[in-house]
């Protein structure tokens, strides 16, 4: 976004400068809009300086053959005419090659897969474990409370004097004890479930993380070197009493 904004500013800046300066009749103004600074642009046989991209420049009038290319893109060839004292704005829009498009897709998929394998399973398992830990902590608090209550009712029972006190303390003790048993079962069930699910999560996460380190980053090789596929060697042989060298070439496809 910022780049486009700067480009627009530059265009207007150039236009305003162009409006102020006196352009000789033998020249016109040309601005080449190029996104990628690595793009090679030639006007006829002259290489256009990348520092002059996206800026207006005065050049001699006439027709020029523009050739532009950047890695992974189709070569662009076009003819532009620079007219006397006129302003020409040419957008160098290169189309990606099919191979480069495939490479870009593979690269994106590689990055997605790498991050997906490396972080997401651990994150999910981690959130699950933290959540379960919180749950177990809450259940432990409830258990502590029930434990205190049961001990208190037990003590009340042992210190009871009247039949009513005995009856009340016994009733409370039995109710709380039953509740404590239920809470304890629930707590241990949650802990066991956490252990099983968490273990599976950790194993899967570790495996996927290991896989993420084994993923191969796609490499773009637009111009495969022929020489890397060719093995050439000289072998001396004896033929009609003379030693001759034969050249054997193996081409690997």
């Amino acid at each position: 976004m910022l780049r486009y904004f700067i480009t627009i500013l530059l265009i207007f800046g150039s236009l305003s400068i162009f409006a102020q300066i006196n352009v000789p009749p033998s020249k016109g103004s040309l601005i080449l809009l190029v996104k990628d600074k690595k793009t090679t642009v030639r006007l006829d046989s002259i290489k256009y300086d990348p520092n002059n991209f996206n800026q207006a420049h005065l050049i001699d009038t006439g027709s020029y053959v523009l050739r532009a290319w950047v890695q992974g893109h189709e070569l662009l060839e076009d003819t532009i005419s620079v007219v006397s004292q006129k302003y020409i704005r040419y957008k160098v829009d290169l189309e990606r090659t099919a191979a480069y498009d495939t490479y870009r897709k593979e690269l994106t998929w590689y990055r997605v897969k790498k991050n997906l394998y490396r972080y997401v399973p651990f994150l999910v398992t981690g959130v699950y474990l933290i959540n379960q830990k919180q749950k177990i902590d809450d259940l432990d608090d409830d258990l502590d409370f029930s434990e205190d209550a049961v001990n208190r009712y037990y003590s009340d029972y042992n210190q009871a004097i009247t039949p009513n006190e005995f009856e009340l303390a016994e009733k409370n003790f039995l109710e709380r004890s039953a509740r404590y048993d239920d809470q304890l079962s629930e707590r241990n069930e949650v802990a066991n479930q956490t252990l099983i699910v968490g273990s599976i999560g950790v194993i899967i996460s570790s495996y996927l993380m290991y896989r993420s380190f084994k993923l191969k980053k796609p490499v773009y090789s637009p111009t495969p070197s022929l020489l890397s596929h060719v093995d050439a060697s000289f072998s001396p042989i004896l033929m009609n009493g003379e030693i001759l060298n034969t050249l054997s070439i193996t081409i690997k496809l």
């Binding site: 398992t125 432990d140 001990n151 003790f173 802990a191 066991n192 252990l195 950790v202 993380m209």
Partner: peptide
């Protein structure tokens, strides 16, 4: 590091809690 962290969390969550009130029995009034 990741495995260490998980192990630490596991050790906090997975231990089973004992019933400490098992021996607490009321005598007859």
């Amino acid at each position: 590091i990741a495995v260490f962290v998980f192990c630490a969390v596991f050790s906090l969550t997975s231990c089973e809690r004992e019933n400490v009130l098992d021996d607490l029995k009321l005598e007859d009034s």
